[in-house]
Design a protein around this nucleic acid. Structure first.
Length: 139
DNA sequence: GCCAACGTTGGC
DNA sequence: GCCAACGTTGGC
């Protein structure tokens, strides 16, 4: 069961929820920011991960699960750059937009709102559950 | 397309 | 070790 809850961003023109759903699971790579990498490294198998579309959409679109924990990116010669595997769990019945998150008192403290450029961040279980509720989705 | 925020790099 | 210059992200 999930003991950690996260949100990751992806620019859908590069890799979208549809792509993840089609592929079933994906190696989540390309994270360069040091803090974001530390968050990736802290993910545990079974943790739930909200997938957010940056640039186009600006909304949470689905939920994934960590299926393989962090290891060094085989394609990057840098030990600090890590990857995890994420598997699609469920598309939100209704995407939850950034504007909506900002307007929710319970959610506007999220790193998504406060640190716009961070691409991997922890969320609390209540925050994740609130987003699922707004997205009319039960796991 | 612009630009604010912020991380990184490199000269001193 | 400071900080200016530069690069990148991502919302608007």
């Amino acid at each position: 069961m999930a003991r950690g809850w996260w949100l990751v961003k992806s620019d859908p023109s590069a890799y979208s929820w549809d792509d993840l759903e089609r592929d079933g699971s994906a190696v989540w790579d390309g994270v360069r920011n040091a803090l974001a990498c530390r968050h990736l490294a802290a993910m545990k198998k079974g943790d739930l991960v909200l997938i957010y579309h940056s640039q186009e959409g600006k909304e949470v679109v689905g939920v994934a699960r960590v299926t393989k924990e962090a290891r060094p990116d085989p394609k990057a010669g840098d030990e600090r750059l890590v990857v995890v595997d994420l598997a699609a769990v469920k598309r939100l019945a209704r995407p939850v937009s950034l504007a909506e998150i900002k307007s929710e008192p319970a959610l506007k403290g999220m790193a998504l709102v406060r640190q716009a450029r961070l691409s991997v961040m922890p969320v609390t279980q209540p925050e994740l559950e609130r987003i699922l509720a707004l997205g009319k989705t039960k796991l």
